[in-house]
C-alpha cells in the first residue's frame, strides 16, 4: 500500500485537511452525488467511475483539490470529498447491522475515550464504530477489536488498510462470548465496547480487562438483553445507566406564503388577487411573501439499540 496517499486521519501533519491538499493516485475519495447517495472510491489512474450522470475518468481527478465538483462526459457532476469517519459510516459495505452517528458519538463521549486510550471492542462487525474509536484514540492509543467470524474480520482488516487506520486498529478472530478477551489485556483497558447477542457472557471478562474506574458500554437492540446484562453488571460495576439516543432531521425550504394584511375598511379593494375572508370580516390580499421554513423529516430511524454504560467499581 502506498503510504503517501491521503487517508482518513491527519496523524501525519503533512496529510491533514488543507487548501493545498490535492487528489493523487491511490487516494480514497468519497464521491458525493446527493446527501443520501455517496460512494467510496480508491483513485486509480486508468479507472473510470460510471453512474447515472455519465462516465468520470479518474485521471481527470488527479491534482484537483478535495471538495471539487467534477463533470462527466455528459455534463453530469459529482463532488469528491476527503473521507471522514462520518462519511465512511455512510458508504461502507454492510456485512452486519452497523452503528450510526448518534450512537457512535455518544459512545465515544460516554466511554470517555481520548487520545492514548486502549479500547477493546467485540464484535467488529462492519467496522463503523471502530473507525470512530480509532480516530478518538489517535495518535498514541490503540483499538483491539475482535470478531468470531473469520471472513468478516478479514474484510474489516482490509477496510482499515484502505482508510489508513491499520496502525491504530488490530483485528483479532476470537469468540469473546465463549473465551473472553485475551489475558494479555488484563487490567489495561480504558474502555470496553460490547455489541454481542449475549453480552452478559462477556461482561466478567470485560471487568477483568478494565483499569480501575474504566468504562464499559454494551449495545443491544432488545430490552431483554439489557435486562440480563444489567443483572451481571451490578456484580462489579457501578454507575450503570441505559440510554436510547436518536436523531431527528429537518427539511428546510423556502415557501411563498400569501400575506394576510388587512386592507383599510375593505371597500376600496381593487386588486385582482385571490381574496379571503378574515375572521373579523376584513378583506385580505397582497403579493406572496417568501419565507424559509423548517420541519422534521417524515421518516426517521425509530430504534437502533439500547446503550448500557457502566463503570468498574473502585475497590480500595
Amino acid at each position: 500500500m502506498d503510504l503517501n496517499t491521503d487517508k482518513m486521519l491527519a496523524s501525519d501533519p503533512a496529510r491533514k485537511f488543507s487548501f493545498n491538499r490535492t487528489i493523487s493516485n491511490g487516494d480514497l475519495v468519497i464521491v458525493y452525488e446527493r446527501h443520501d447517495n455517496m460512494k467510496a472510491v480508491t483513485v486509480s489512474e486508468g479507472s473510470v467511475l460510471q453512474n447515472r450522470f455519465g462516465v468520470f475518468k479518474h485521471s481527470e481527478w488527479l491534482g484537483k483539490p478535495f471538495g471539487s465538483k467534477i463533470f462527466s462526459n455528459k455534463g453530469g457532476f459529482v463532488y469528491l470529498l476527503a473521507p471522514t469517519p462520518e462519511l465512511w459510516t455512510l458508504v461502507l459495505s454492510h456485512r452486519t447491522q452497523i452503528l450510526y452517528i448518534a450512537d457512535i458519538s455518544f459512545v465515544v463521549m460516554y466511554l470517555e475515550i481520548v487520545p492514548g486510550c486502549l479500547v477493546l471492542e467485540s464484535g467488529t462487525g462492519s467496522g463503523s464504530l471502530t473507525t470512530s474509536l480509532a480516530r478518538a484514540v489517535a495518535p498514541t492509543g490503540h483499538v483491539y477489536t475482535f470478531d468470531f467470524h473469520e471472513q468478516r474480520a478479514g474484510s474489516a482488516r482490509d477496510d482499515f488498510e484502505r482508510t489508513g487506520l491499520s496502525s491504530l486498529v488490530t483485528v483479532g478472530v476470537r469468540d469473546i462470548q465463549g473465551e473472553g478477551f485475551p489475558d494479555e489485556f488484563t487490567g489495561s483497558a480504558d474502555a470496553v465496547f460490547l455489541d454481542l447477542p449475549q453480552p452478559w457472557l462477556a461482561i466478567p471478562s470485560a471487568a477483568k480487562m478494565l483499569k480501575q474506574d474504566g468504562t464499559l458500554c454494551s449495545f443491544s437492540p432488545c430490552i431483554e438483553q439489557v435486562q440480563r446484562s444489567c443483572e451481571v453488571l451490578q456484580i462489579s460495576f457501578t454507575d450503570i445507566r441505559t440510554f436510547e439516543v436518536l436523531l431527528r432531521t429537518y427539511e428546510v425550504r423556502e415557501e411563498k406564503l400569501e400575506s394576510t394584511q388587512r386592507n383599510g375598511d375593505g371597500s376600496n379593494d381593487s386588486l385582482p388577487c385571490k381574496r379571503r375572508q378574515c375572521s373579523d370580516g376584513g378583506n385580505v390580499i397582497r403579493s406572496p411573501i417568501s419565507s424559509v421554513m423548517a420541519r422534521p423529516c417524515g421518516e426517521a430511524r425509530g430504534h437502533t439499540g439500547y446503550l448500557t454504560f457502566a463503570r468498574l467499581r473502585c475497590l480500595i
Binding site: 430490552i223 444489567c230 441505559t242 440510554f243 439516543v245 436523531l247
Partner: peptide
C-alpha cells in the same frame, strides 16, 4: 457547502430493574 443537514438529538434514559423496566 454540501451534505447540509439540521439534526436534533433525542436522548432517553431507562430504569432497568427486574420486571420494572
Amino acid at each position: 457547502a454540501i451534505g447540509l443537514q439540521i439534526s436534533e438529538p433525542w436522548l432517553r434514559e431507562y430504569q432497568v430493574l427486574p420486571s420494572r423496566t
